[in-house]
Simulated assay, not measured.
Amino acid sequence: MRAEREIDTDAALVVIDVQRGFEEEAYWGTRNNPAADGNIAGLIDAWQASGRPVVFVRHDSLKPDSPLRAGQPGNGFQGYVEERRGRGSGPELLLTKSVNSAFYGTPDLREWLDRSGIRQFVVAGVQTNMCAETTARMGGNLGYEVFFALDATYTFGLTGPYGWVLGADELARATAVSLHGGGFAKVVSSAELIAAAG
């Protein structure tokens, strides 16, 4: 992000699925970017200190074997997120969903953003190439200015068709290239966002 680029005073931070269930390595595999948690916490702190709105998104999985299903311990937010909820002076929203995009959750994210006149938001959270990317793509399609805090996200490796396997870092780079190169979002660092929001 260029130094002259300012973050709107009402730009929302959308913190996606930072839930305890993602700590279950036996289910997901090995994650990348261990610094993500500190960067997510830093973004929440900066947004709350500036009075900007924060949206906390929780994935209520419908899959019976998922650690993220409702009613299970893994459904809850990780401790550093939960302890920050309700601490800001700005608006705060808790949104739940059972699909990838936060725009298909409850309450309606688009309606909440539009009612508040918000045209700009930042995406952080889990997983980089799943719910975070999908929310950023949809936000870009809907006409919002989206910033994607790549270093405030993490993911896990995947096996795809034809036996293709991509590691977590490869998937994160693919997300960054697709979002930024495709014009869906501006991929930036959490430090740039925190500095711009100050």
Results as ranks from 00 to 15, higher is better:
36 A>R: 11
182 G>N: 05
174 A>F: 05
149 A>P: 09
26 A>N: 09
102 A>M: 08
190 S>R: 05
105 G>E: 06
156 F>W: 02
77 F>K: 05
124 A>R: 08
66 S>N: 10
105 G>L: 07
171 L>A: 04
184 F>G: 07
42 G>V: 03
189 S>K: 12
127 Q>D: 07
20 R>L: 13
162 Y>L: 12
92 E>R: 08
88 G>H: 08
49 A>F: 04
91 P>F: 08
143 G>L: 02
189 S>C: 04
153 T>D: 01
9 T>D: 14
20 R>T: 11
92 E>V: 08
176 A>G: 01
10 D>E: 12
177 V>I: 09
109 L>I: 05
78 Q>H: 10
178 S>K: 01
178 S>I: 03
35 A>M: 12
121 F>I: 05
63 K>M: 15
19 Q>I: 01
149 A>Q: 01
183 G>I: 01
108 D>S: 12
66 S>W: 02
37 D>N: 14
23 E>H: 13
175 T>A: 01
145 E>K: 14
19 Q>E: 10
42 G>M: 08
56 F>L: 02
115 R>T: 13
60 D>A: 15
184 F>T: 04
70 A>D: 10
55 V>E: 08
47 W>K: 10
132 A>Q: 05
130 M>S: 12
79 G>S: 15
149 A>F: 00
189 S>M: 02
169 D>R: 00
94 L>I: 10
35 A>S: 14
124 A>C: 13
33 N>L: 05
16 I>C: 15
93 L>W: 14
89 S>V: 12
31 R>Q: 13
130 M>K: 04
38 G>E: 14
129 N>P: 00
132 A>E: 06
169 D>N: 02
9 T>I: 10
98 S>T: 14
198 G>K: 15
8 D>K: 15
122 V>T: 13
30 T>Y: 04
177 V>G: 10
103 F>G: 07
151 D>Y: 03
162 Y>C: 04
43 L>S: 12
